[in-house]
């Protein structure tokens, strides 16, 4: 049954909980109370388990698996975005520049579309050109609507299309190891690229 004792449902209680729990997520708390062991693979899941087809800015069909072997930085954008996407993209370019040349050489930058309906290869190309992205390292990728939802869920990107064609979304940047496992995940732009630079360097080790 749903369990919310009314008396606890006050902001005051929330504040106390915040202090008391160190703000654990639901499953964190749940797992703390678990005594039984579930047989689990201790192996970290990899982004390369996502096997669906993607279309790049040149209209070619691509698979994530193709990016195995080198660290990569990924985020989700939509090309008609005028607010956060250009800023995230600019941040990633700053990150790119900040990498030591030998690391930069082997780092890939993946931009996944949140707007498969409108982000045609031509739109992706235009976005890449506008932002002068070095296509030897940067790849822009769109998928089906359904697969976009999967990708957003895996990356933890929240999004909500609004009536005016904008897509409000969280600015999530991930840094992945060459095997597709997660090295670092950053939400929001406020922390700058420093932690991401460090993560890419680590991932490239």
């Amino acid at each position: 049954m749903l369990r919310l004792s009314r008396t606890r449902l006050t902001c005051f209680a929330l504040t106390l909980m915040l202090i008391g729990t160190g703000c654990s997520r639901p499953s964190d708390s749940a797992s703390a109370s678990r005594s039984e062991t579930t047989a689990v693979t201790t192996q970290q899941p990899s982004l390369f388990e996502l096997a669906f087809p993607l279309t790049d800015d040149e209209g070619r069909t691509r698979r994530l698996e193709e990016f195995r072997g080198e660290p990569f930085v990924a985020t989700m954008v939509y090309t008609s975005c005028t607010s956060v996407c250009p800023r995230v993209t600019a941040d990633l370019k700053t990150l790119e520049k900040a990498l030591p040349p030998d690391v930069r050489e082997h780092t890939r930058f993946l931009l996944f579309s949140l707007d498969p309906g409108r982000d045609t290869p031509a739109a992706l190309t235009k976005f890449a050109d506008q932002h002068t992205l070095d296509r030897s390292r940067w790849t822009l990728l769109a998928s089906s609507e359904d697969d976009m939802r999967t990708l957003a869920a895996v990356l933890g990107v929240k999004f909500r299309p609004d009536e005016g064609g904008e897509i409000a979304h969280s600015a999530v940047v991930v840094v992945c190891n060459p095997d597709g496992t997660l090295r670092q995940r950053q939400v929001g732009l406020q922390d700058g690229v420093g932690p991401l630079v460090a993560a890419v360097r680590d991932a490239a080790q």
């Binding site: 369990r3 729990t21 703000c23």
Partner: peptide
């Protein structure tokens, strides 16, 4: 860091679990 208001929602959830 940077999760201020989001934290409230998470805390809310922690409350559900704790309850």
């Amino acid at each position: 860091g940077g999760w201020g208001p989001a934290v409230v929602a998470l805390a809310l959830c922690a409350l559900l679990v704790s309850a």
